[in-house]
Deep mutational scan, measured.
Amino acid sequence: NTCEECGKPIGCDCKDLSYKDRHWHEACFHCSQCRNSLVDKPFAAKEDQLLCTDCYSNEY
């Protein structure tokens, strides 16, 4: 699979995080606004962007 954020392949030695058929490296899986990691945290998706709950609450 190819990472949505950096565009590089996700190798066998990396954790592949996925959501709705989109894939990310663990280090690339972060909020589109504040850039905080979303690994093991709740998040929301809006208009193809992933947002942490704080940024989502502030926007919507």
Rank of each mutant, 00 (worst) to 15 (best):
N1K: 07
N1H: 05
N1C: 03
N1Q: 01
N1M: 08
N1D: 08
N1S: 02
T2V: 04
T2E: 02
T2L: 09
T2Y: 01
T2G: 03
T2P: 02
T2M: 13
T2C: 15
T2A: 02
C3D: 01
C3R: 00
C3M: 01
C3T: 00
C3G: 00
C3Y: 01
C3Q: 01
C3A: 00
C3K: 01
E4V: 13
E4A: 13
E4I: 08
E4M: 12
E5A: 11
E5G: 14
E5V: 04
C6T: 01
C6Y: 00
C6W: 00
G7C: 11
G7H: 04
G7R: 06
G7V: 07
G7D: 03
G7T: 14
G7S: 03
G7M: 10
K8G: 07
K8D: 05
K8E: 10
K8H: 11
K8A: 08
K8Q: 13
P9M: 04
P9L: 03
P9R: 03
P9K: 04
P9H: 05
P9D: 02
P9W: 01
I10N: 01
I10C: 07
I10W: 00
I10Q: 01
I10V: 07
G11N: 05
C12V: 12
C12T: 12
C12G: 14
C12W: 07
C12F: 11
C12L: 08
D13R: 04
D13K: 08
D13V: 05
D13F: 05
D13Q: 09
D13I: 05
D13P: 06
C14N: 13
C14R: 08
C14Q: 09
K15R: 12
K15S: 06
K15E: 04
K15C: 03
K15P: 08
D16T: 08
D16H: 02
D16C: 11
D16E: 08
D16L: 09
L17W: 13
L17A: 13
L17V: 12
L17T: 12
L17S: 10
L17C: 15
L17F: 13
L17K: 14
L17R: 13
L17H: 05
L17Y: 07
S18Q: 11
S18E: 14
S18A: 09
S18W: 02
S18H: 08
S18V: 09
Y19V: 11
Y19F: 09
Y19I: 11
Y19D: 07
Y19T: 06
Y19R: 05
K20D: 12
K20C: 07
K20E: 14
K20T: 06
K20W: 02
K20G: 10
D21E: 13
D21H: 00
D21C: 00
D21S: 07
D21F: 02
D21G: 10
D21V: 00
D21Y: 02
R22E: 03
R22I: 04
R22W: 09
R22M: 15
R22T: 06
R22F: 08
R22P: 02
R22N: 06
H23Q: 06
H23W: 03
H23S: 05
H23F: 06
W24T: 03
W24S: 05
W24G: 05
W24K: 03
W24N: 06
W24E: 06
H25Q: 00
H25N: 13
E26C: 03
E26I: 02
E26N: 10
E26T: 09
E26W: 03
E26Y: 03
A27Q: 14
A27C: 10
A27S: 11
A27W: 09
A27H: 05
C28E: 04
C28W: 00
C28Q: 02
C28G: 01
C28D: 04
C28H: 04
C28M: 00
F29L: 05
F29T: 06
F29M: 06
F29K: 03
F29Y: 09
F29D: 02
H30D: 06
H30I: 09
H30C: 09
C31L: 01
C31V: 02
C31Y: 01
C31M: 00
C31G: 01
C31W: 00
C31E: 04
S32T: 13
Q33N: 10
Q33H: 07
Q33R: 12
Q33Y: 04
Q33W: 02
C34H: 00
C34A: 00
C34L: 01
C34N: 00
C34Y: 01
C34S: 01
C34K: 01
C34M: 00
R35K: 13
R35M: 07
R35S: 09
R35A: 08
R35W: 10
R35L: 09
R35C: 10
R35D: 14
R35V: 08
R35H: 07
R35F: 12
N36C: 09
N36F: 08
N36P: 01
N36R: 11
N36Y: 06
N36G: 12
S37T: 07
S37G: 12
S37K: 11
S37N: 07
S37D: 07
L38G: 02
L38C: 01
L38T: 04
L38V: 09
L38Q: 01
L38A: 03
L38R: 02
V39Y: 06
V39D: 12
V39P: 05
V39Q: 11
V39N: 11
V39T: 11
V39H: 12
V39C: 07
D40W: 02
D40S: 07
D40N: 09
D40F: 03
D40R: 07
K41Q: 13
K41L: 10
K41T: 12
K41V: 10
K41H: 12
K41A: 12
K41W: 03
K41E: 10
K41F: 06
K41D: 08
K41Y: 03
K41S: 10
P42T: 14
P42L: 05
P42Y: 09
P42S: 14
P42H: 15
P42W: 11
P42C: 11
P42A: 15
F43C: 14
F43M: 14
F43S: 12
F43I: 15
F43T: 14
F43R: 14
F43G: 07
F43P: 14
A44T: 15
A44P: 06
A44I: 05
A44E: 15
A44G: 14
A44M: 13
A44Y: 03
A44D: 15
A44N: 10
A44Q: 14
A45L: 10
A45V: 13
A45R: 14
A45T: 15
A45G: 15
K46R: 13
K46D: 15
K46P: 12
K46L: 09
K46W: 07
K46A: 10
K46S: 11
E47M: 07
E47H: 09
E47S: 09
E47L: 10
E47D: 14
E47N: 12
E47G: 09
E47K: 07
D48I: 03
D48E: 13
D48A: 10
Q49H: 12
Q49M: 12
Q49E: 11
Q49K: 15
Q49L: 12
L50F: 01
L50A: 04
L50V: 08
L50K: 06
L50Q: 06
L50N: 02
L50I: 03
L50E: 03
L51F: 15
L51Q: 09
L51V: 14
L51Y: 11
L51G: 04
L51N: 06
L51W: 06
L51D: 04
C52I: 01
C52P: 05
C52N: 05
C52W: 00
T53H: 14
T53Q: 14
T53I: 03
T53G: 12
T53E: 14
T53W: 01
T53N: 14
T53F: 03
D54Q: 10
D54H: 08
D54I: 14
D54T: 08
D54C: 11
D54A: 08
D54G: 13
D54E: 11
C55H: 05
C55Q: 03
C55L: 02
C55S: 04
C55M: 01
C55R: 03
C55N: 04
Y56M: 14
Y56Q: 15
Y56F: 07
Y56G: 15
Y56I: 12
S57V: 07
S57C: 06
S57D: 13
S57A: 11
S57I: 02
S57W: 02
S57Y: 03
N58H: 06
N58L: 09
N58C: 07
N58T: 14
E59L: 06
E59K: 06
E59D: 12
E59M: 09
E59Q: 11
E59V: 11
E59C: 15
Y60F: 12
Y60H: 15
Y60M: 02
Y60C: 15
Y60D: 15
Y60N: 14
Y60R: 12
Y60K: 15
